[in-house]
Every structure is written in C-alpha cells, then in structure tokens.
Amino acid sequence: MSRLDLIPAFSVDRVFIEPWRDHADTFFWIALMGFFVTTACGLVGTFLVWRRMALVGDAISHSILPGIVIAFFLAQTRATTPLFIGALVAAGLTVWCIEAIHHHSRIKPDAALGIVFSSFFAVGIILLTLFADSVDLDADCVLFGEIGFLPLEDPVVLGGLFLGPLPLVRMGAVLVGILLLLALVYRPLVLASFDPGLARILGFGPRGINFGLMAVLAITVVSAFESVGAILVVAMLIFPPATGSLLSDRMPVILAGNALVAAVSALGGLHLAIWLEASIAACMVCVAGAVFGLAWLLSPRRGLLRRRPPLSIPFSDPTATPTETTRPS
C-alpha cells in the first residue's frame, strides 16, 4: 500500500454532489447542527475570550464528566434532563472550587483552574470505569463526540408542525436562548467584561454576571457535548470570536461574525470529512482553524502580511479631526 492510498481520492462528484443528491436529509441536519453548535459556542466564547477566560470553557467541558456519569448511574436512563442537571451541578461546583481556591490561598486562578478541572475529570474517568457495567456511556464518545452519529430518528412535532430531530431542536433552542439573553443584557455584560469596578458601582454585580455567564456556558457546553465532545468544544468556543476579533473592532460585528465562521466551518468541515472519510467534528474544527489562520494572515488592519506602521495620532492637538480612518467600511 503506497502512502498516497492513505488519503482517499478526491472527486467533486463524491465529495460535493453525491451527499446532497442521495443523503440530503442527513447531511442537512448534520451541517445545521454544526452551524448551531459553532454559533452558540462562538457567542458565549466571545465574552470568554475578551474576559481572558477562554480556558474556563475547557475546564467546564472536562469537569462535567463526573456529573454526567453520576446522573446516568442514578437515573439509569439516557434521558437528557438528568444528564443536563448532573452536568450543570458539576459545572457550578467547578466554578465555585476555582474561585474558592483562588480567593483563599495564594494560588493564582490559572493554576486553580488546572487543579480543579483535571481532578474532576480524573474522578469522572474512575466513575466511568467503576460503573462500566451499569452505565451505557462510551468514553470515546464523551471525549470526541461525533456529530455524524446524532440520533436523527426522534422528531419533535409541535402543534402538528415538524420542527426537526430532537438534538437539533434542543441546540436550536439553546442558540435562541443565548440570542435573547444577549439582546436583553448586552450592555451590562459588556460593561462588566470591560470594567468590573465600574459595573459594581453602577449596581451590576460583576460576580453575579460572571456566574450567569458560567451557567450559560455550562448549558451550551453540555448541549454541544454530544456533537463535538469535550475536547473539540473548546475550539468552537475560541476560534470564531478569535477570528472576528482580528477582523473587527466592534463587538456587535464580532458577535455576528461568529455565524459566518460557523457556516463556513460547518459546511466546509462536512465536505472535508466526506472527502477524507474522517470525523466530521474534527474536520469542522480544522476548517474553523484554517479560517482563523487566514484572518490572522490577511486581516486588512492587523494581518501578519499587511502590517503597516502604527497609526500616527496627533498628541498635542486633541481637537484635530482624525485624518486617517483605516476601519474597513
């Protein structure tokens, strides 16, 4: 077997036409799920990235494992509700432990985070082994997830209207919930992220906002979990907002840009996976990574290849009108 045989041959027909001709239904739902997951994660991730908390998503996605295993064990069912509750409890406990260690010792937050999530994850793995006989939960599935194995046979019908398969409807609901929350408390959230001191004075308790953000993060991660798994969900939290932040200086544009990155990586990743016969979730993450790389190289204002001398700003004459505007219109 030659080395070239490792990569399946590329054919436009097999990669781009056949899937939509013969399995349009399945692939539509998979692409849509990828889009939902990436957009939802990107919206939450935007605030994590700008609050320098990007790895908290990593921590939570790992530390919910014991919560899920215990919930499975106690409820003895694959139903989603107990799983959700177990994961949320574990996520809340994680955030609380990180804060407690950080505030009551000289350990800094990043080390506290590492201590907490790896311990939780280790406990989860032990529990998974202990309950292996009574829990129908696959470690690979938890770690890597697979969007291609989504159960699509469970339709949600509301008032006679077919909405879609259950996982899709659930993820869509999470996305809509995040959008609604953002529309409601966007301003206090930005204020608390930018200047927690002022937020506190003005009556927007930054700790409460932080806790709310963690709760939304936990719900998002748990919902994204079965599609992309514990490890790749981190990429979905960070890549889209990181890409947007290279391309724009406006928070609303960065937030909207998440949807664009999500659409490109969901569709691109799906076709890449069909070509390579590889994990769809991993391919979606690779495409998102490639999009970030392109933005990094080519961003019109801060791209590596477009680096211009910094803006010269009149220092002594603050009343002068700004002469150069390099913001892309």
Binding site: L184, F194, L202
Partner: peptide, 19 residues
C-alpha cells in the same frame, strides 16, 4: 477591548438605565 470611545463614555449612563 472592541468598544469605541463613545461606547465607553455611554457606560457612565448605565447606572441610571438599569439592566
């Protein structure tokens, strides 16, 4: 942080705007 000068100054008004 991706906010404009006017955005930052408007934050001074948030206290009277509430949530």
């Amino acid at each position: 942080f991706p906010v404009s000068v006017l955005d930052v100054v408007l934050m001074g008004r948030y206290g009277r705007l509430g949530w």
